[in-house]
């Protein structure tokens, strides 16, 4: 088991589905959802939450600042 576990929370209504977070995620945690938010964008969501290491790369590149990152050691 990994030593560090992370988790992200996406503010779905503010996400514009630009996919920049998806390509900058080193572990492939993030994917675009099949559903859309009220503005019609396919929002980002943690499709593989077990892979997240809490590196905050996604939050760094997010143009809309919708991602909150948590990290803990186990």
């Amino acid at each position: 088991m990994a030593k560090v576990r992370g988790s992200i929370v996406v503010d779905i209504e503010k996400c514009k589905g630009c996919e920049v977070c998806m390509v900058s995620c080193p572990t492939g945690t993030i994917a675009m959802a099949g559903e859309v938010n009220s503005k019609g964008y396919n929002y980002a969501w943690p499709a593989n939450p077990d892979l997240c290491i809490g590196c905050a790369n996604c939050a760094m590149v997010c143009p809309d600042g919708v991602i909150t990152v948590y990290k803990t050691k186990i």
Partner: peptide, 12 residues
């Protein structure tokens, strides 16, 4: 259990 204020790394 990870999403707790003490584990916060990055927030808007």
């Amino acid at each position: 259990e990870i999403i707790r204020p003490e584990n916060l790394v990055y927030k808007r």
